[in-house]
Design a binder for these strands. Sequence first.
RNA 1: GCCGAAGUGGUGGAAUGGCAUACACGUCGGUCUCAAAAACCGAUGAGGGCAACCUCGUAAGGGUUCAACUCCCUUCUUCGGCACCA
Length: 798
Amino acid sequence: MHYKFKKIEEKWQKKWLAAHAFRAQADSTRKKYYLLEMFPYPSGKIHMGHVRNYTIGDVASRFKMLQGYNVMHPMGFDAFGQPAENAAIKNKTKPDTWTRKCIKEMETELKRMGFSYDWEREVSTCDSDYYKWNQWIFLKMFERGLAYKKASAVNWCPSCSTTLANEEVVEGGCWRCHTKVEQKDLEQWYLKITEYKERLLEDLSQLKEWPQRVLAMQNNWIGKSSGVDIYFRLKDRDRVIPVFTTRADTIFGATYIVLAPEHPLVKELIQGRRQEKEALEFIDKVAKESKVVRASTDIKKEGVFTGSFAVNPVNNEEVPIWIADYVLMEYGTGAIMAVPTHDQRDFLFAREHKLAMRVVIQPKGNSINAEDLSQAYEGDGIQINSAEFNGLSNLEAKEKIAAWMEKKGIGKIQTHWRLRDWLISRQRYWGTPIPIIYCSKCGIVPVPYKDLPVELAKDAPFTGEGGNPLGKVKKFVEVKCPKCKGAARRETDTMATFFDSSWYFLRFCSPKFNDAPFNIGEAKYWMTVDQYIGGIEHAILHLLYSRFFTKFFQDIGMVDFPEPFQRLLTQGMVLKDGEVMSKSKGNIVDPDSMIKDYGADALRLFILFAAPPETELEWEERGLEGALKFLNRVWRIQENLKDKADAELLKVLHKTIKKVTEDFGEFKFNTAIANLMELTNAIYQLGADREVFSKLVIMLSPIAPHFCEELWEILGNKQSIFKASWLEYDPQLLVEENVELVIQVNGKVRSKIEVPRDIPEDKLKELVLKDEKLVPWLEGRPLKKFILVPQKLINIVI
RNA sequence: GCCGAAGUGGUGGAAUGGCAUACACGUCGGUCUCAAAAACCGAUGAGGGCAACCUCGUAAGGGUUCAACUCCCUUCUUCGGCACCA
């Protein structure tokens, strides 16, 4: 028979809720601990990924609680977003109705897992109490020129019929529906995240407790690249084309330059030339190409000659100016110098179009020449054909040439970045309205703070056709200009939902605060988030945006720290048969039915035991059975308690306390559980008294909270187990009088010996050399060395 | 191509210089039972040996060390990020 998990879990969930057991209040006399898991999109059902994420967080939270910290562990819902609109169209309902129903269902499921949230702090981003502050933040950014509108080619998802941020384009497709992203010229709202690029990059080094790979991904994404802008003069006109290079050492090998087809100078360069028609056709062709096609490395590099020439400023050589599709307008200066001998792309292009090549770097101990090359030499070496720089190593020359060019005014040491401004407007209904009004007289007018929130029109029609439903609500669109009171039109675009989640961790500090997005004093107490837990899929998007927002709040004096998340854990995915669980694969395991069959505590235990938190976890129902089996085993201990535990068991207990405390602190829940299992096994061998058993129950309580509350009550305690304190171990009990030493001969284990722990070395040596088992190994061979690792091992070298 | 993570029994995994495979799953054997389930006890890396034991073994190869899953070098494989980024 299993212990009655269903009854027990329901009982304690009710009690916790009624007692506001996890209510957090700022208290400057107590040490705080802010634990946060990434809040979910309310799809209605939780999945195993949520269960894993939130279980990890819950154990950490309850452990810190037992350790006496003032723990804040909030939960909320990232409730805006497209699925609600799709559902509204499909089910003929409103996004609002649908979302709220989903939130209700999800709350129930989360409660059923026994998570220790302070539900009084719950926020949903779709509440105007919340999104009002999105608008407030937007206006603050607008005032500082950090929110701005511009027309440009933007990423457009035809299936979602909305724009996408660069961060939301994954392998050329929409991050949500994978539809191929198109380019469209639109006027859109942007946030100037690029203004923070240096700080976003530099402060990564402060994040010592973030996973390496997340730091690496952010680093890549920001994409700082240092080099030189070199100024090429036009041969027949007083105009300059700057090109960007990271390889200033190859400048003497630049035999032509290439502009992106969209480069503003191109039209002028080709005008009236023999090549004009061909060039125009080429530009037109490239313009029609999608970014994905153009970005594929394996495609042949195409280009045309402009008919114009430029002058290489280091040697006054005339070089032809080409345009080619492999040069991108968005990066660097939109123009490059081509060094076919030392850049593979230039090499392929030059060979195709029979352009000149010159070797300027010789590999050490080898000699190459342009005619014989089958590919570019991109490695290091010694400068040749480079005037006064000949003979230098190219690495040295790179520095020297850059400095020399800067001094002569023909170049400038320059840094270029990959990071672009963040496109935030979306042509969708279910999001935060952008608080802007367009007036034919006054232009772009921000909605005054006193008029916030700009509420979503509740009665927008959901037909699935004809663009943003907000645009069809006259009442919403037609407004008076706040400045001149004349007729004006309201912005109908809404904000990307990543805006909402970029600061919710601050809102949790004072979720009902009415005067600002958050109460500065409360945030000062609770922030920063001590431990943040979530999926790796947010390594760039959400985490980068949140860092940006925090720096913005720092700049406007609302917080006094640059980074929001002290420590980050990215939990691994839950797999079934080696694959990610998904509807399309039909391999989804529903947490709710697992709770029904095994109980939430067993589910929590299994998911923590099966793998360390960061690695992928293979779903195995047998393992879940095993977890329940273990809980039953612990349950039965109470039926056979002794009056006094023996000394041997106390030693095991205190070792376990030490190990489990350390493991919990480092989120090594799998080994912590293994240790608790060993203690349980020892209790089965030796028998436990009520004190030892109570301690086992305390250690297990963060993992299986309902189960342990019940046992705690059975043991006669009146208060919740989470009012108890965590355990101290007695170091005295960890000291063994006798220790077993391993005896190795030449590094191989040949014998073992039990000796008093403080035995003097000479006496030990005498004892060891008498060991019968060693005789065949030592006989007739001179002893070279006797190595003793105290209390562990002896190695005899012969 | 660049950056990052990883590779250990039949399986999930443990050990971060000191007994490789803790803990669990699975499998096999036993106790209890008319029988089964549950529970409990035991065995379980491979090969050899009646046995005591021996040899091999942490992706592959090399190195450092008395001692290497662990540190260093080279290579391979898998996963993830970035990428005609100049």
